[in-house]
Structure formats: C-alpha cells, structure tokens
C-alpha cells in the first residue's frame, strides 16, 4: 500500500475501534441507526472541515468557520421571515462564502499577512454581523425545511441516510475530485509543500490562494446552510468554537498542519471520530461535555506529536 494512505488507515482504525468500544459498552450501539445519526449530526461541521482541509494542506489556517456557520444561519432565517425560499437564500449564501473567501485569499497573498490573523478578523466580523442582525434565535418556518429533514435513503437495518448526510457525501466527493483530479488541486499541495518552489515551478500563486480560501469560504457556508436547515433556525451564537472542531477533525484525519500532506477523505473520518466521542459520552449520562473537549485535546496532542516525529524523520531522510 502506498505510504500516503497510512495516516488515513490509522484514522479509520481508530474510528472502527471506537465504534467497537461503543458496541461493547452499550447494547444496540453498532447499528445503522446510530451510524446514520452520527453522519447526520456531524454533517455540517464535517462539510466545513472539508474546506478547511484545503486551507491547511496549503499551509494556512481558517479561524472564521464557526462564525460563518452562525452568520449564514442568521441571514437565512431573516430572509425566511420576509418570504425567501431557503434554497434561494442558501444559494445566495454559498455565493457569499465563495466571494468572501476569495477576498480573504487576496488579502493574505497581496498584503502578505499570516492567514491566522486575517481569518481571525473574519471571525470577529462575521460573528459581530450576526449580533447586529439578531440577538435571539429566529426559526425558519418554510415548509422546505420539514421536507428536507424528512428526506432520506433507508439503510439496511433501521438506519437512514439523512438528507444532510447525503449533502455531506456529495460535498466530499466534489472535494475529492477537486483535490485529486484537477490541476488546481495539485497546485494546493505544491504551495503547502514548499511555497517558493511552487512559485518557481510556475504555480499561479494569487489565483490559487484566492481559490483555496474561496473553497474554504464556500464549504463553511455550505456547512452553515446545512446547520440552519438541520436546526430549522438561525442563531447568532451557532457554530461558536466549530473552527476548532473543524481544525481538529482535519488533523485527526491525517492532514499535516505544516501543509503539503493530507487527504480530504481523512477529514470525514476525523470528524466522525469527534462525533463518535461525543455520542459515546452522551450515551453515558453521567459524563458531560467537558470530556468531549478533554478527549479532543488529548487526541489532538497525540496526533500533533505523531506528525511532528513523522515530519522530523521525513526531513532527515531528505537531508541524508
């Protein structure tokens, strides 16, 4: 097997092991019902994390994901009040995410500012805009929301593949296509691997950087649309801290935070691991949300240290 799939394999093994642990601890845990719900519950954050995967592979970081999710929901809810169809307002927000991301990429490349600080400003801006529009949750009452929630494909057993999970899988397929079967995708990996070399090899830097962050913006907006439909409301605090969950999912999925190495498919399993931990902890009523954060931190630590030594040996090999 090609060594680039090793981290992905490791992530899948961790996921399967966690699922098995759930099965040992609780009756009826290993079922398509739990699995279907797991996919649906975490669809929005995994979608956003898919966009982040590209940003991280390029050596950057995006901190404005959570705010984007909240902002998209708030705008959609308010447009629902004035009678817009959620598909129309959602589509508009996807375009917004695309344009917003492209602008972020332009600022990062043109002004040569660290992505971390630019997207931090984006975090403020979008979250603040949420508060300017609304302070409370606004329900989305359009019938489409119910139809969307009800739509599903039955899985063997009692489970269902919910509509949000379906959107997530389509988004994932599109991302895999972009990442691995287009020149643009290859350019992202090149920039993350070595920026200077990539420029010397003829990668169009500005265009690619804008494209990368446009993808990040688009996917986090899509995550926001799914979240709004899934919760049938727009809440200005929605998605708070989701940027961290997304980044952690990407890292758990085997993508190197130093850039250049990673697989989009890994992010799916990274996100599912996070979701699974939450599910396991929720199954046991006595545990609480604190565990989710701590276990998340421990996993993050382990993977980062692991990566550190992987990369270390990588460098040594190329230097020898």
């Amino acid at each position: 097997m090609n060594e680039k799939y090793l981290p992905l394999a490791a992530t899948i093994v961790v996921f399967v092991a966690l699922f098995a642990i759930g099965g040992i601890l609780y009756n009826n845990f290993v079922s398509t019902l739990v699995f279907g719900d797991l996919l649906a519950d975490n669809a929005f954050v995994i979608i956003a994390a898919i966009g982040t995967t590209f940003v991280i592979i390029s050596g950057g970081i995006d901190l404005s994901i959570g705010s984007m999710i909240g902002f998209v929901g708030v705008v959609m809810a308010n447009l629902d009040v004035v009678g817009w169809h959620p598909l129309v307002s959602g589509g508009m927000m996807l375009v917004f995410g695309l344009v917003y991301g492209a602008l972020v990429g332009l600022v990062i490349d043109f002004c040569d500012i660290q992505p971390f600080i630019v997207t931090l400003a984006g975090l403020f801006l979008l979250r603040g805009s949420c508060f300017m529009i609304n302070l409370d949750a606004v329900p989305i009452r359009h019938d489409f929301v119910q139809d969307f929630a009800a739509a599903s494909i039955p899985l063997p057993g009692e489970g269902e593949l919910h509509s949000s999970a379906i959107v997530m899988l389509i988004a994932l397929a599109a991302a895999i296509f972009i990442g691995h079967f287009t020149r643009f995708g290859a350019n992202i990996y090149a920039i993350g691997g070595d920026r200077t070399s990539a420029a010397l090899m003829g990668v169009p830097m500005r265009r690619t950087m804008m494209g990368i962050y446009a993808m990040g913006g688009f996917y986090s907006a899509l995550g926001g649309v799914i979240y709004a439909l899934y919760t049938s409301s727009g809440y200005p605090l929605a998605g708070t801290g989701n940027e961290l969950t997304a980044i952690a999912s990407v890292v758990l999925g085997g993508t190197l935070l130093t850039g250049g190495v990673g697989l989009v498919a890994g992010t799916l399993f990274g996100g599912l691991i996070f979701g699974l931990i939450a599910t396991l902890i929720n199954f046991n009523g006595s545990l609480n949300g604190a565990w989710i954060m701590i276990v998340g931190g421990v996993l993050l630590f382990l993977f980062i240290v692991l990566q550190r030594f992987l990369v270390g040996s990588f460098r040594l090999r190329s230097a020898a």
Binding site: K4, A186, Y189, A190, G192, G193, D194, T196, S197, A198, L200, M201, L256, G260, V261, F314, S318
Partner: peptide
C-alpha cells in the same frame, strides 16, 4: 532542489 518533497515524483 526546487521541487516539492512532500509530493510524489509524478506530481
């Protein structure tokens, strides 16, 4: 060597 060490030879 101005290539990308993290990418495959083909890429």
């Amino acid at each position: 060597v101005n290539l990308i060490p993290t990418m495959s030879v083909t890429k």
